[in-house]
Amino acid sequence: MSLGKDEQPVRRRRRGPALESALLDAAWQEIVEHGYDGLTYEGVAARASTSRAVVYRRWPTRPELAQAAVLHGARGVPYHPVDTGTLRGDLRAHLLWANGARISVAVIAATRLGGYFAETGTGPGDLRELLLDGRAPRTDALYANAVARGELDPARLTPRVRALAFDLFRAELLMTLRPVAEETIDAILDEVVMPLLIPPVADGR
């Protein structure tokens, strides 16, 4: 059935998860464009085509709204477990995924959330813990696979060594605020991480 020229299509009312996702999409875009200091309930409501009260009922403080929006933005890229057959290949594939999936969140955390961190007394590490939500880092599964293959001695997996590949990757990303070059990822793995995890066999000649 076609609509007459003076008729308007009926907007279907959003509810539950669909409404919450739309609100968080709007809040995330407000943070991306205006930063935490420019985040307002009115701006989120206007972008989501709803009322201020609808947003406020779910997140009654700006820090709660910002936190939910950042976590929503960070979780928006699906993760597919990797198994290339080698630890180096798995770590490289994981860092390349993070290069696309985490760059926007890292840049926003570094450049747009200063007011949020000051107001809440938290830092980027606290957001990361919320994002992990109690689960182990994804790299733990990569190390477990390498141990199961007999490729890696689990005694070498100290907490610092476990975190090293991603720590170096994250430091590079935050220093440049752009995706980490593939040659830099290769250097992180080949010059630092892999020699610590799987020391080269000494030449006995």
Rank of each mutant, 00 (worst) to 15 (best):
E172T: 14
R57N: 10
A141W: 01
G123C: 13
A101S: 14
V107E: 09
A68L: 08
L157V: 04
S51R: 11
R57A: 10
S104K: 14
G115V: 05
E182D: 15
D140Y: 06
D133K: 12
E33D: 15
A109G: 12
F169G: 05
S104T: 13
L157P: 05
L127I: 13
L127H: 09
E33L: 15
V54A: 14
I103F: 04
V54R: 10
Y56I: 04
V70Y: 09
V70K: 15
I103C: 09
Y79R: 03
T50H: 06
P17Q: 13
A136S: 11
P124A: 13
A48L: 10
P199L: 08
V55I: 15
P195K: 09
R15H: 11
M194Y: 08
P60A: 14
G89S: 05
G73Q: 10
V44P: 04
T122V: 04
P137R: 01
R11N: 03
R15P: 00
L19K: 11
V193Y: 11
G114H: 10
T84Y: 06
I188Q: 02
D133A: 15
L130H: 09
L24N: 06
F166G: 02
A101H: 11
V77K: 03
S49W: 05
A66V: 10
L71M: 03
L168P: 01
A46S: 11
D25G: 02
L19I: 01
S2Y: 00
L196I: 13
D167Q: 12
S51T: 15
M194V: 10
Y36N: 12
A66I: 13
S21A: 15
G114K: 07
V55F: 11
D83L: 04
R128N: 02
P159H: 02
R156Y: 00
R92I: 02
L189N: 00
V147E: 08
L113Y: 01
W28Q: 01
Y116K: 01
S104H: 12
A101P: 08
R75V: 02
R178S: 15
A181Y: 03
L127P: 05
E64D: 12
F166W: 06
L113S: 08
R112N: 00
R14N: 00
I103M: 13
A27H: 02
A66S: 09
Y56F: 14
R156T: 08
A106I: 09
N99Y: 03
L91T: 03
E42S: 07
T184N: 10
S104W: 02
D190R: 12
N99R: 15
H72R: 07
